[in-house]
């Protein structure tokens, strides 16, 4: 209640008429309504944490910290470990970031410096519409359209280029099945690219024009200004924006479930099918009976995902101190 502003209690004079008192009472109630709604937001997050923890606790008790390093996921022997899912989540997100970051940077450069001014709004809107496409649509498109293309064109070509190189060749070994870790990473990249681009554009637009003009004034070209002034000025916020994108990639469910292949094993090849935390929860939940150890294990996976994305998001928010994302 320390946040109450001083002019809130305007009508507390001793000669207040009953009309004024009733008005005052209504005002008090209204204030408590506002306060209660705000407090509810806090309670909600608290409840999410408590219930996920409570649900996952039996699994944590049964498997201890070994849960996070064991690659076994066996409903028959009731042995559950999260290593495969942690690996899948991490690798697909890293692939997504590696592809989405340069693409977003380029598109943001185009939208803020290169494109003719009348075009910027239209193209910017198109990019934001891409961000609004539901993830299940990305999943279907990825499964029916992109995966076959990956299998017939992209994966054999990558194999031909990188295959002979030791170590790196391992990443592109195996049968080009279309679905798998690599395709999941690619679809994730396409999903978070518009989201990161929108934040980049906001950051670049917030750079004081004077700084850019000064650089242009001493004869710098557009890309030199971009590289030497715009990007360094927004550096911290850019990192924050990338981490917000990462947070989104880590928890994305439907698109990944369609294309990751859903196999509980870790392979060196990026062509191999895998599983992410979110895809495992979505896939295995229907077979997890109420009260079963499997359900507890899935809830513990959920808790792990929550902790990971919470840390990433908290870090991101701390970096993007200016609130930009909508």
């Amino acid at each position: 209640m320390t946040a109450t502003s001083p002019n809130f209690d305007v009508s507390t004079s001793s000669s207040a008429s009953s009309a004024l008192t009733s008005k005052h009472l209504k005002d008090k109630l209204f204030h408590w309504g506002l306060y209660g709604a705000a407090a509810f937001v806090l309670v909600l997050l608290g409840a999410i944490i408590v219930l996920l923890f409570k649900g996952g606790f039996p699994a944590l008790q049964a498997f201890g910290l070994g849960f996070f390093v064991s690659a076994e996921w066996n409903p028959v022997t009731e042995q559950y470990g999260a290593a495969v899912m942690l690996y899948g989540t991490l690798v697909t997100s890293v692939i997504a970031m590696l592809l989405a970051f340069p693409a977003s940077l380029g598109i943001a450069l185009f939208l803020t410096e290169v494109a003719p001014v009348p075009m910027r709004r239209t193209i910017g809107t198109a990019v934001q519409l891409l961000a609004a496409v539901p993830s299940i649509i990305f999943g279907m498109w990825g499964f029916f359209i992109v995966s076959p293309l990956m299998a017939t064109w992209v994966q054999p070509v990558l194999q031909a280029i990188f295959g002979p190189i030791p170590l790196i060749g391992e990443l592109f070994s195996g049968a080009p099945a279309g679905t798998g870790i690599l395709t999941a990473g690619l679809i994730l990249a396409l999903m978070i690219m518009p989201f990161i681009t929108a934040m980049f554009v906001e950051i670049f637009n917030s750079v004081p024009p004077v700084l850019k003009e000064a650089a242009y004034g001493i004869g710098a070209t557009t890309t030199e200004v971009f590289k030497a002034v715009t990007v360094p000025y927004g550096r911290t916020a850019l990192v924050g924006a990338v981490m917000l994108g990462l947070g989104r990639a880590l928890g994305e469910t439907m698109a990944v479930t369609f294309v990751i292949g859903n196999a509980n094993r870790i392979k060196a090849s990026l062509y191999a099918p895998g599983a992410s935390i979110a895809s495992t929860i979505a896939n295995e939940f229907p077979e997890a009976g109420p009260g079963s150890m499997k359900l507890h294990a899935l809830l513990e996976l959920g808790l792990a995902l929550f902790v990971i994305s919470f840390v990433v998001l908290a870090l991101a928010r701390w970096l993007v101190r200016t609130r930009i994302e909508g």
Binding site: T2, A3, S5, A38, A39, V41, L42, L44, L45, A47, I48, L51, L52, G55, L244, G247, R248, L250, G251, E252, T253, A278, I281, A282, L298, L299, G302, L305, F306, S309, F310, L313, A314, R317, R323
Partner: peptide
């Protein structure tokens, strides 16, 4: 203004970006 409001703002941002599948589990 103040710490309470900052906390609400932060928690709201977390809810805004929390993976939707976790909302389902919750």
């Amino acid at each position: 203004r103040g710490k309470f409001a900052d906390a609400v703002r932060f928690v709201n941002d977390v809810l805004l970006s929390a993976p939707s599948i976790l909302i389902g589990l919750f």
